[in-house]
């Protein structure tokens, strides 16, 4: 039997984020019809991109600016879409936005939800995610009428599967969209041109104790700019007040899976690995050859990152 799958598309200033394509690739399965839900843009403007990855229906939802900013309203919109198109599985990204949206949907519907997953089998309803600080992989059997999945950004390589899509406009009953006791006062606009999202970055350059102070992080920022990378930090750097909490990678920070993770002056505690062990390639730069990260990486340099990174910047500039 044909299953209808809903995919919540995340946009950034009207543009479709690259990480959506990996999610669509993950959701694609035999005997499924893929419905993309677009809440923040004209469906027509993203149609070609979505068709390239196999979307056949695009549900366009028109919301006011206020409604767009309200995660409770957004969750209720998705519930309307689920009911209108008989959707049995919903996929969204496990980003900051997704973490505030997908659990709301699952909670309102009393549906199952697995966040931060990287493999889904819709025939057997099995899903894989990491648990215990990245030390184990859990295979979870999910049950219920509707299944909700939060997909780890960058965890799945996008694979094209050209299709042709039809745009459908969903008329919403405003009385279904009330956010009881929840009002948006202010939303912050992230300027992606200067601030690459840590969890979605292809390359991350992160600093730890070896950075010695907050000022030295500007060296990492400069290198990140050249590499189109995001800057991360270990807990030590965050606790010392050198950089904000939001830059922390690890157990109690962000969990990231970039293609390349460059660790500068980071020893590599179990808790730090919990946040970055699913990275593609790990390059460690540390003066201490015995630091645990040095035996758990792809490349290591026994040197001071404060000497290596400025050289790397020079080479990138001359490249």
């Amino acid at each position: 039997m044909m299953k209808n799958i809903g995919i919540i598309i995340e946009l950034d200033n009207g543009k479709i984020k690259e990480t959506n394509f990996g999610m669509i690739t993950l959701a694609r399965a035999k005997d499924t019809e893929l419905f993309a839900v677009v809440m923040d843009a004209d469906a027509a403007s993203v149609k070609e991109d979505l068709e390239l990855f196999g979307i056949t229906k695009i549900v366009e939802v028109c919301l006011s600016k206020d409604q767009q900013a309200n995660p409770v309203v957004r969750a209720k919109v998705i519930i309307n879409v689920i009911k209108a198109y008989n959707i049995c599985a919903v996929f969204g990204l496990s980003t900051a936005t997704g973490k505030d949206l997908l659990p709301r949907i699952a909670a309102f519907l009393e549906a199952s939800l697995v966040m931060d997953c990287y493999a889904v089998d819709l025939e057997q309803n099995l899903v894989k995610t990491s648990q215990y600080s990245g030390k184990t992989i859990a295979t979870i059997k999910v049950t219920g009428d509707v299944l909700v999945f939060g997909v780890r950004p960058n965890a799945v390589e996008p694979v094209k599967a050209q299709a042709s899509a039809r745009i459908v406009k969903l008329k919403l009953d405003e009385s279904n969209l009330v956010a009881k006791g929840f009002r948006v006062i202010k939303t912050s606009e992230v300027d992606e041109s200067t601030n690459i999202n840590l969890v979605e970055a292809d390359v991350i350059i992160a600093g730890g104790r070896g950075m010695k102070n907050g000022d030295n992080f500007t060296i990492l920022s400069k290198c990140a700019e050249k590499l189109n990378a995001a800057v991360g930090a270990s807990r030590v750097a965050v606790d010392a007040g050198w950089v904000p909490y939001s830059m922390q990678v690890g157990q109690t920070g962000e969990k990231v899976s970039p293609m390349v993770y460059i660790a500068c002056g980071i020893s590599g505690s179990v808790q730090h690995f919990a946040g970055m062990k699913t990275s593609g390639m790990v390059i460690a730069i540390n003066t201490d050859g015995n630091a645990s990260i040095m035996s758990n990486c792809d490349y290591y340099v026994k040197a001071d990152a404060l000497e290596i990174i400025p050289e790397l910047i020079k080479h990138l500039e001359n490249d």
Partner: peptide
């Protein structure tokens, strides 16, 4: 009606072989 049940746990193994630069 809904539920999430762990059917299997496996250790996440690291297969990295460090090379020095």
């Amino acid at each position: 009606k809904a539920g999430m049940k762990i059917v299997e746990l496996e250790p996440l193994l690291q297969k990295r072989e460090p090379k020095e630069i």
